[in-house]
Design a protein around this nucleic acid. Structure first.
Lengths: 134, 134
DNA sequence: CGCGAAGTACGATAGGTCTCGTACATTCGT
DNA sequence: ACGAATGTACGAGACCTATCGTACTTCGCG
């Protein structure tokens, strides 16, 4: 895939990620405070690697999903890279762990625990997060 | 303090707090995602007990401060109780720890670390004091 | 009882976020 | 080259949030 030629007027194929130092705790918390995004991060965490944008169970449209991914990326929670028509996502575990030790893990654990507790009514599915909104 | 009597047209002297089961992770995260509130929680954590509403260095007006305290309370992060003209605030450490083990501690540690790393352009939440935790 | 202090309520305002649908761009396979 | 698949951009709309100022209530004190 030699880049035959950069399209003159195409959309930017380059994705901007914040540097490690630019990641703010408030932003990460904010990013994680949304049920949809929390679900995404949950899935990404279990995937432990790359993940396409469209394997999520979120009850939102594609546009909205794109929006959430962007928020996650711009707030330093995930990295994204193009791979053909798909876009691979991955958690920035190293950066996050270095900046806020244990944070991601703790939040994710709490999220799983809450999801499990909230499913007390018998449903057994659901590892994919995305709990319903308030 | 005897509850003299409910004034006919006065503000409710009773403060509603969510029950432990009603506390949602997303809400807590959201509450913590604001710099002002994070600063409040930081101070409250160091106070380890009660704390008046007006000992904060937040660069906001009193009304706004009240608003933030309410958000914190309604999202299950703190408890509030009247004591004369003052209102005492305290973290709901037990409930939070029971629901989301380690979360509060991790977030607070991360906040202190970030504050220490980015000193200079203070975002408002002063609260730079003893770094040692009990 | 009147005054000051602490905090709340309410209204207003500016800005953000979440959601969507539709139109468009880019890549892959045939 | 064409079509399908994946994802983006761009409005637009509804809702929520953060902020403020001012008026008000309640409490403690002299």
């Amino acid at each position: 895939m030699p880049a035959t030629s950069t399209p003159s007027g195409g959309a930017p194929r380059v994705l901007g990620h914040p540097s490690r130092d630019a990641i703010r705790l408030e932003d990460v918390l904010h990013a994680l405070a949304d049920p949809v995004r929390l679900g995404i991060v949950l899935v990404l965490d279990e995937a432990e690697g790359e993940c396409s944008c469209s394997v999520f169970d979120a009850p939102v449209s594609k546009s909205t999903l794109t929006h959430h991914f962007r928020v996650l990326r711009e707030h330093g929670v995930i990295t994204q890279a193009y791979r053909g028509t798909a876009k691979m996502n991955a958690l920035r575990r190293d950066d996050l762990e270095d900046l806020f030790p244990g944070l991601l893990d703790t939040v994710l654990t709490a999220a799983r625990r809450q999801a499990a507790a909230g499913l007390g009514a018998g449903a057994g599915a659901a590892a994919t997060g995305a709990t319903s909104r308030s």
